[in-house]
Design a protein around this nucleic acid. Sequence first.
DNA 1: TTGGAATGTCAACAACACTGACGTATGCTC
DNA 2: GAGCATACGTCAGTGTTGTTGACATTCCAA
Lengths: 170, 170
Amino acid sequence: MEDGRPSSSHTGESLLFLTDEQLRQGIEAMFFAYRGFTADPDRILSDMAYGRAHHRAIHFINRAPGTTVNNLLSILGVTKQSLNRVLRTLIEDGLVESRIGKFDKRERHLFLTEEGEALEQKLSDAQRARMRMAFRDAGPEAVAGFRKVLEAMMDREMRYTYNRLRESGS
Amino acid sequence: MEDGRPSSSHTGESLLFLTDEQLRQGIEAMFFAYRGFTADPDRILSDMAYGRAHHRAIHFINRAPGTTVNNLLSILGVTKQSLNRVLRTLIEDGLVESRIGKFDKRERHLFLTEEGEALEQKLSDAQRARMRMAFRDAGPEAVAGFRKVLEAMMDREMRYTYNRLRESGS
DNA sequence: TTGGAATGTCAACAACACTGACGTATGCTC
DNA sequence: GAGCATACGTCAGTGTTGTTGACATTCCAA
């Protein structure tokens, strides 16, 4: 594969990555990589009574402290009933604190407790270690491409959310 | 972010993609992109009685026709009970055919029927359309980097499986 | 005061994963 | 041929995470 021709045809070279076979390989790469991506936190969580949904909630509460339930809902893309079940256990277990809004008292602002931050750290350490390894192995140019393709693959609203988090994060 | 220094320090530039903030953004990119990645097939499947698990089975049976149950099991990384539930419905509905092994009669070799191929086509058309768009928007160099990072993110066995499928596919 | 928004909660259900146990057919080895 | 291992299927139970639908509460705003 990789065509073999001595890189003469410009169009041939620049469109090769759009063949069905290349697209299929991209699809499979996403599938297998996502498995690796979630494997480490999943292992940690399986010992406790928590799952991937708890991880996601903890991640984004840590990322945007004081976020409202509604906001978190739109980030995670699940129903409030589904999120509520997760949030309730996290609050009961003392990992998340829910404070009534100062201005709008209907809103609940979510924060991690010290204990919650400790778990977040533990989970994200594992996940970042894998990401760091992958980034290091692949090199900076590859990482830029990785981010570019992933961003192009998101739905519009998700891309917007993603970029808002990026701005606030750094 | 982006450090601000006038790109003099080579090490600073090439290691910037390993900061915690950059790694977190990589993690979030994976999360949001995977949502987009599965969104289109999910929409199609939600109309029928099938889910993501059926899609995965159909995809890999199409990709490696005649694969055994055990082989499919190791590709998908689930238990045989979980796969069996999915396979049973697909066989009952006439999308998948299971043939007894010619040499080893304990084995079952799996194939898509015409109807199964039709659904596979429909699902992968949607998924490839998104992948094609993302690849086109990002450009060939980005695609190469995307693949490089994803491959580095896989577990070893998955990387092996992924590459074996690549060889057989093209 | 009435309407709407944000939130919480209850109930029922489905998809998809898991473990554990058991059965059947087949293949391999001694 | 006997005994063990392998490949596959199945039954039963359980857990996480998602969904709808219905309804209550609280609060803000017109």
